[in-house]
Amino acid sequence: HEITLHINGRRVKLRFRDEKAAEILKEAAKKGLDEEELKKLAEELWR
């Protein structure tokens, strides 16, 4: 699955395995994680 989040006016595509991962990524984006941090988090969730 993929999700596209808008971060600092940019579109960031993240891959994720399940809905739980999608929710975690959305929450992290709301908390203000930047693009690099979100990509790292997405990679961690993928494993």
Rank of each mutant, 00 (worst) to 15 (best):
H1E: 08
H1I: 11
H1V: 09
E2I: 15
E2Y: 15
E2C: 13
E2K: 06
E2Q: 09
E2R: 06
E2D: 06
E2A: 06
I3Y: 03
I3K: 01
I3C: 03
I3Q: 02
T4C: 07
T4P: 01
T4F: 09
T4L: 09
L5C: 05
L5R: 00
L5S: 00
H6M: 15
H6G: 03
H6T: 15
H6P: 03
H6R: 11
H6I: 15
I7L: 08
I7N: 02
I7F: 05
I7M: 05
I7S: 05
I7V: 14
N8R: 07
N8H: 06
N8M: 06
N8E: 06
G9E: 04
G9C: 05
G9I: 01
R10E: 06
R10H: 12
R10C: 08
R10N: 09
R10P: 00
R10Y: 07
R10T: 10
R10K: 15
R11E: 14
R11P: 15
R11L: 15
R11V: 15
R11I: 15
R11Q: 15
R11G: 11
V12H: 02
V12C: 04
V12P: 01
K13V: 15
K13Q: 10
L14Q: 00
L14T: 01
L14S: 00
R15I: 06
R15H: 07
R15V: 06
F16E: 00
F16D: 00
F16K: 02
F16V: 15
R17Q: 07
R17I: 10
R17L: 08
R17Y: 10
D18E: 08
D18H: 06
D18V: 04
D18A: 04
E19H: 12
E19I: 09
E19L: 11
E19Q: 15
K20Q: 11
K20C: 06
K20E: 08
K20I: 10
A21G: 11
A21H: 15
A22K: 14
A22C: 11
A22S: 07
E23Y: 09
E23S: 12
E23M: 13
E23G: 12
I24E: 07
I24R: 07
I24C: 08
I24W: 05
I24Y: 08
L25W: 06
L25K: 00
L25P: 00
L25V: 06
L25T: 01
L25A: 03
K26H: 07
K26N: 06
K26W: 10
K26Y: 11
K26F: 10
E27P: 00
E27I: 08
E27H: 08
E27L: 11
E27K: 09
E27S: 12
E27F: 05
E27N: 10
A28R: 04
A28L: 05
A28Q: 07
A29T: 05
A29E: 04
A29C: 05
A29Q: 07
A29R: 03
A29D: 02
K30N: 13
K30E: 12
K30I: 10
K30H: 10
K30L: 12
K31H: 13
K31N: 15
K31M: 14
G32K: 04
G32L: 06
G32S: 04
G32R: 04
G32A: 05
L33E: 06
L33H: 08
L33N: 06
L33F: 14
L33A: 14
L33S: 09
L33K: 08
D34A: 11
D34L: 11
D34R: 09
D34P: 12
E35P: 09
E35T: 09
E35M: 10
E35S: 08
E36L: 11
E36A: 12
E36Y: 13
E36I: 12
E36Q: 14
E36R: 12
E37T: 07
E37Y: 09
E37R: 12
L38C: 05
K39L: 14
K39S: 08
K39R: 14
K39G: 07
K39Y: 13
K39A: 07
K40R: 13
K40Y: 10
K40P: 01
L41G: 00
L41A: 01
L41D: 00
L41H: 01
L41Q: 01
A42Q: 03
A42P: 00
A42L: 04
A42D: 01
A42K: 01
A42S: 08
A42Y: 03
E43F: 08
E43W: 05
E43I: 08
E43Q: 08
E44R: 09
E44Q: 11
E44W: 11
E44P: 00
E44D: 12
E44L: 13
E44V: 11
L45F: 03
L45S: 03
L45I: 04
L45T: 02
L45A: 02
L45R: 01
L45N: 01
L45H: 02
L45C: 02
L45P: 01
W46I: 03
W46F: 06
W46H: 02
W46K: 01
W46C: 02
W46N: 03
R47N: 15
R47T: 14
R47S: 13
R47P: 04
R47L: 14
R47W: 13
R47F: 15
